[in-house]
């Protein structure tokens, strides 16, 4: 029970990630039908994406979109920032150091705490991975159709038997 509370529940995403990945790998290796192999590949890919998205999750965080709410305090600070910006434009001598301080002040005034938002970097990377996964699946299905046209079957053992006896579509 202690193990369950300490290691399983807080890291449940990672446990399921490993389970799904092994289900996909097992399907890719042992299934006889080519379409079933591709279903396994699809599950494998989503398992990896699940791992990466789970890295970006923080407890008590929300979606990484910034709201524009203008209450009193924020309006004042925004005004102050604008003023100091003008001041900054007039005074060009100490640009480097002023700029650094100013940036820091903006960050503190707006009260944007990164702990309140999920980390968007893994999300953006995985957006690319989803598109790559679908294009991989498309190419693999096209090759499967071509294999079916040549060998009349999608079962791996039948295709291998036909290759062995030098069936149609075999150039070697």
């Amino acid at each position: 029970m202690e193990f369950l509370n300490a290691s399983v529940i807080p890291y449940f995403n990672y446990w399921i990630y490993v389970v799904l990945m092994m289900i996909g790998l097992h399907a890719m290796i042992t299934k006889n039908n080519l379409i079933k192999k591709l279903i396994g590949m699809s599950i494998f890919q989503t398992a990896i994406i699940l791992f990466y998205v789970s890295i970006g999750v923080k407890t008590g965080s929300t979606i990484p979109i910034l709201e524009h709410h203008h209450d009193e305090g924020h309006a004042e600070t925004a005004h102050a920032v604008a003023e100091s910006g003008d001041h900054h434009a007039e005074e060009t001598d100490h640009e480097k150091s002023d700029h650094g301080n100013n940036e820091h002040a903006i960050e503190a005034d707006h009260g944007i705490d990164p702990d309140h938002f999920a980390n968007p970097l893994p999300h953006v990377l995985m957006l690319t991975a989803i598109v790559v996964g679908v294009s991989t699946l498309g190419v693999a299905l096209a090759i499967s159709q071509s294999i079916y046209k040549d060998f009349g079957s999608l079962e791996e053992n039948e295709i291998l038997a036909k290759i062995k006896q030098g069936g149609p579509g075999v150039d070697v």
Binding site: T46, I49, V53, S54, G56, V57, S61, T62, I63, P64, I65, F117, A118, P122, H123, V124, M126, L127, I130, V131, G133, V134
Partner: peptide, 17 residues
């Protein structure tokens, strides 16, 4: 993914995946 806060990944998965 929508529940984990990755809404962009969620709607890409719904449309594409």
């Amino acid at each position: 993914w929508a529940e984990m806060g990755a809404v962009d990944v969620a709607f890409t998965e719904a449309a594409v995946g």
